[in-house]
Design a protein around this nucleic acid. Structure first.
Length: 810
DNA sequence: ATAGCCTTGAAC
DNA sequence: GTTCAAGGCTAT
């Protein structure tokens, strides 16, 4: 096992300094990077940053002692762009790996998880096919590349089918979100009852995909992924135009004509049968077009059998996922580093979700009647019942239903957020709808086929009025709430993060930020060095693209409930220690008890295990969890503003190329405030010494090194999310069909990051370049992590995305 | 468009 | 049979 010195030697011997142009962040070609930070050609100003492309060739300096020599000093100005040195070794490996990955992904076409023959209620993206398409009456147009078909034909009956399906599925959803029309209907049915994708070209480019998952699929992988996303809270337009019409941009108001109504649609089970799954699948978001028409309106189907949640309520399909225990939930802090709703922790810890008779389960000690007697979390009116995922009043229920069913696209004339109360709820439907989403109303709870009656089985949020929350939560204008079970807080967290923009350092004080009127309860947050006031002032200088990227960042994060579900089985599998106890300790500010040694990849997926001693079931579970995280990444990707404009094939290619980097980078960023430790989710950490005992030293060492750099650079959250996008949008792989387009997208992200760093850190103009120079580190670490994980999981289960990805590489 | 009330029907 | 969360109806 390499030691520190060997790593340094490797770093120094890596062709960074010799190849001269190493790319951002990988592969062989030079990447053009706008480099205002690097050169004098740029004239930055705090609020109006001009970005000039300056080409620089960089050689990465040696990194003795793990410290980066200020790279900016090595910039050489050329004609318009920065050439960032690349690890040449990595370049080749990545390329070949990517190719293998792609091939592998292509193979993973058909298999989907088990689903009841009746299938779940189709989600909106599934149901947005035109009726003729849905009827399957038209001859599908074969549009997939021949190579794909061949691969599919040869692998249709294998276990490698679901990944491509899943990716395309999500891609299809993405395009649904992007547009209203149905320009394409892709159909690529495979033998063995594979999913059908119909594609029929129309004027515009996006593609609508529809899946008809095969019967009898029981992939726990897909099950896991199907429930991996956060709730259906989605941001409204990040930058609503004040000049826009107030509402009703979309006018499919006639139920008979509504594209939503596809009650005669064929069997179209989604990734998720029940709403819980729906909330995790790709079915809830609507795009930057900001139309609820893209919402995952559910259709009604019988839920799959054999999948129970808690006391028997229908829940996830996952085989590996055990019934949710709140103890796990309470320990989950999905990152507590990210989800900082402290009050939520306290409340969640008191819940006993599994004890309820049905969803929604009542929190311990709080009767349903008490809840109903509480004010509506949206407007403060009287709660009439549990509607679309939360307890709400009748008017908000009806409002939410109308908005989604009629595909309203409200835009706040003031740019939001407006106060939403009983007296003002009619004034700004845009902000009201946003608050509905924020408070946890689920788009997928709206039935696509409009069938009446019956009970919904989606995973419900459980919203407590503030009056019942701990004193940590101040009554948010008497309408705030906390959402339990499946926590619907990411928007709030995200906004608070936007206010904070913190990078995990200098977290010293806790303040209660003056929440915007619709932010719900004031949430205790950690404040960075800068004051919240200053941070707020800086919001205005954040490039719109970064704001948009940040708006979807919550998709990256796990909710507590998700973490609980994911990690709950760990305690059953893992031997020797209790992950939950460790997490509990961490959540209480205590040192975690003998943290599990964790594979860095799995760690980045938010789990830990003792890989050396793990039994096959544990490995399978761990891979499944990592798989789950990958799914979230896909979800995140598809919602990225830049990513949406990229073709499906290229999206898949990019994702294949960057998934590991994305995972590891998130893990490192998470660990900024814990020097010497890589912080897993839920407070679990791993040190280098612990890693040594488990053969993970090299990878952990590199992760620590990268984290050190991130800390030194004081990378904040905006920079973090921008870097993720930049890493994602690597346009250098040869598999890309529209490399230029991808590169343009990446350059936009680069420009935004540059503008941001210049505006926010004018005292360190080199920051932009230094941030980019961390990417090669990330890639090297990632390569190592992949190899290690592959070794450790080679004999494990063979059914999930992670395994398939890894197998494709080796 | 809103919101209160009614009807429906799957889960229990 | 009961519950209750859907959608529908309709007065405002």
């Amino acid at each position: 096992m390499p030691n520190m010195s060997s790593i340094k030697a490797e770093q120094q011997s890596a062709p960074l300094g010799t190849t001269g142009s190493f790319q951002l962040p990988s592969n062989s070609n030079a990447t053009t990077i706008p480099a205002g930070a690097a050169g004098g050609a740029t004239t930055p100003s705090r609020h109006n940053v001009s970005v000039t492309n300056i080409k620089c060739e960089l050689d990465e300096p040696p990194t003795p002692n793990g410290n980066l020599v200020p790279v900016i000093a090595n910039y050489e100005l050329h004609s318009g762009s920065i050439l960032i040195p690349l690890t040449g070794q990595q370049s080749q490996e990545d390329e070949s790996d990517s190719e293998a990955e792609l091939t592998n992904i292509e193979n993973l076409k058909v298999r989907r998880r088990a689903s009841d023959k009746n299938g779940p209620r189709p989600m909106s993206w599934e149901g947005e096919l035109s009726e003729p398409e849905a009827d399957g009456g038209e001859e599908p147009m074969e549009t997939e590349p021949t190579i794909k078909r061949e691969i599919l034909a040869s692998h249709a009956a294998t276990t490698m089918q679901p990944i491509k399906t899943e990716l395309e599925n999500i891609d299809g959803e993405l395009h649904h979100q992007q547009q209203q029309g149905k320009p394409y209907t892709l159909s690529t049915s495979t033998p063995h009852s594979g999913p059908k994708l119909k594609l029929a070209p129309t004027q515009s480019d996006p593609i609508n995909l529809k899946f008809e998952p095969p019967l009898g699929d029981n992939s726990p992988l897909l099950a896991a992924r199907s429930k991996s996303s956060s709730g259906g809270h989605l941001p409204l337009p990040a930058n609503p135009s004040p000049d826009s019409a107030i509402h009703s941009v979309y006018t499919h108001s006639s139920p008979s004509q509504s594209p939503l109504t596809s009650r005669h649609a064929p069997y179209t089970p989604s990734l998720s049968r029940n709403n819980s799954d729906a909330s995790h699948s790709s079915c809830y978001s609507y795009s930057s077009e900001f139309s609820p028409t893209h919402s995952p309106i559910q259709a009604r189907h019988a839920p799959p059998s054999g999948v129970l949640y808690g006391n028997g309520s229908l829940h996830h399909h996952s085989v590996l996922y055990r019934p949710l225990k709140m103890e796990a939930s309470s320990t989950a802090s999905s990152g507590s580093h990210e989800a900082q709703n402290l009050s939520m922790d306290s409340v969640c810890s008191s819940l006993d979700v599994s004890s309820g008779s049905s969803l929604p389960a009542s929190p311990a000690g709080i009767s349903r009647q008490q809840l109903i007697n509480s004010p509506c979390p949206i407007c403060g009116d009287k709660i009439s019942g549990f509607h679309y995922g939360i307890f709400s009043c009748e008017s908000c229920k009806g409002f939410f239903k109308r908005t989604v069913q009629n595909r309203k696209n409200y835009v706040c004339v003031r740019g939001g957020p407006c106060q939403v109360s009983i007296s003002t709820r009619k004034k700004c439907p845009a902000c009201r709808f946003e608050k509905c989403l924020q408070k946890g109303m689920k788009l997928e709870a709206i039935r696509e086929d409009r069938t009446r009656g019956g009970r919904s089985t989606y995973q419900c949020s459980y919203t407590l009025p503030n009056s019942m929350l701990s004193p940590l939560v101040s009554p948010d204008q008497a309408t705030g709430s906390a959402t339990m079970h499946q926590q619907q807080q990411p928007n709030q967290q995200q906004r608070l993060h936007q206010l904070n923009g913190f990078g995990g350092t200098s977290l010293s004080t806790s303040v209660s930020l003056p929440a915007s009127p619709n932010l719900g309860a004031s949430i205790k947050v950690e404040e960075p060095v800068d004051t919240a006031k200053h941070q707020i002032q800086r919001i205005g200088s954040i490039p719109p693209l970064l704001k948009e990227i940040m708006d979807v960042e919550h998709l990256w994060q796990y909710t507590d409930a998700e973490l609980a579900r994911i990690n709950q089985p760990l305690s059953a599998f893992a031997s020797g220690s209790s992950s939950s106890s460790a997490a509990t300790s961490a959540s209480h500010g205590q040192p975690p008890q003998q943290p599990q040694v964790t594979n860095p990849l799995l760690a980045s997926a938010g789990l830990s295990s003792n890989g050396e001693n793990a039994n096959p079931d544990l490995i399978a579970h761990l891979c499944n969890v990592a798989d789950h995280r990958l799914y979230k990444i896909v979800k995140w990707c598809k919602s990225l503003p830049l990513f949406k404009n990229i073709s499906i094939d290229d999206q898949i290619c990019l994702l294949i190329n960057s998934w590991c980097e994305l995972l590891l980078f998130s893990c490192c960023f998470r660990s900024i405030d814990t020097p010497g430790e890589i912080k897993m989710s839920q407070g679990r950490k791993i040190t280098l010494s612990q890693a040594k005992s488990n053969g993970l030293q090299t990878c952990i060492e590199r992760m620590l090194n990268l984290t050190d750099h991130l800390r030194r650079l004081r990378v904040d959250r905006y920079e973090y999310v921008a870097m993720k996008v930049i890493v994602l949008l690597q346009s250098d792989t040869t598999e890309l069909q529209e490399a230029v387009k991808v590169r343009e997208c990446q350059e936009k992200a680069l420009q935004s990051l540059q503008a941001y760093t210049l505006a926010h850190y004018p005292e360190t103009p080199s920051k932009f370049g230094e941030l980019l120079l961390r990417i090669p580190d990330l890639q090297r670490t990632c390569q190592l992590g992949k190899e290690m994980l592959t070794i450790k999981t080679r004999d494990g289960a063979d059914f999930n995305l992670l395994m398939e990805l890894l197998r494709g590489e080796h």
